[in-house]
Amino acid sequence: MKRRFLAVLILLATLPSALAAGEGAPKPFERGSWQKLLHAHAGHPTLVHFWGVTCGPCKVELPQLGRFMKDHPGIDVVTISADLVPNLPEATRSMLDNAGLASAENWIFGDGFAERLRFEIDPAWQGDIPRTMLIARDGTITTIEGSAEIADLNKWSDAQAAATR
């Protein structure tokens, strides 16, 4: 009896978030998320891309990143929507889908105190997007302000592959 209640309970409790967000919805990026993210990808070459649905240059760059991810399965691709316009999960997800980034590890700023979130990532970052951080296997971070040149990403990716040989 108890167990059946529990099963119904779990089903009901998980239903709304599944309905509201859907599978593959961006995860809320909160205080402490950055350190968790770095820890989870430690030892793997990782590209972290900060963007936003209202940012013009981001709209151009996102599909290029989608292609980059497809061409470089050895690189962990992470996107973080740092736009502060509320109620964005739907629009964010649809732009990621269209850019071929649905299967990337996707996050969205989930704390209105964006200054603090940005400070945890890079105290010098004032919120300009797009912004890309390339994290090498040894943890070295290269930051690209503004739209990244795909040729530069390819070069970095090749260097990462070479480093394993």
Binding site: V8, P16, P28, E30, F109, G110, A114
Partner: peptide, 28 residues
């Protein structure tokens, strides 16, 4: 009682979402 709460959450997902954004994601 928990079942009722869960049923309410299921029926009003926006209630839950509004609460969340109120506390975390919103600047307001």
């Amino acid at each position: 009682r928990i079942l009722l709460a869960a049923a309410m959450l299921a029926a009003f997902p926006n209630l839950c979402k509004a609460q969340m954004s109120h506390q975390h994601a919103s600047e307001a």
